[in-house]
């Protein structure tokens, strides 16, 4: 399935958001997610099934002023 992760098109082989995050190497990392512009809280990630063309943002803590 083709989705967009952090602005980059990617092909993923699972559909659940949590599974996709595992597939991409995010397990055990301090991250937060949004789907098509909407925040997806951690407990909800288990429920979310992605569709073709979905835009996922995966963010982590970073320097800021």
């Amino acid at each position: 399935m083709n989705i967009v992760i952090n602005g980059e098109p990617k092909v993923v082989h699972t559909e659940g958001l949590q599974d996709v995050l595992h597939e991409l190497g995010y397990q055990n990392k301090v991250i937060v997610t949004a789907l098509n512009g909407h925040f997806v809280s951690e407990p909800n990630r288990q429920q979310i099934q992605l569709k073709e063309g979905d835009k996922v943002e995966v963010l982590a803590p970073m320097q800021g002023g």
Binding site: L24, Y26, K29, E57, V58, P61, G64
Partner: peptide, 22 residues
Amino acid sequence: VTVSLRRESGDSLAGQHFWQMI
């Protein structure tokens, strides 16, 4: 201290290291 959020790729540890240090 103020902090922010930025995109992080699956193989990057930058955000993780930063957060550990903070």
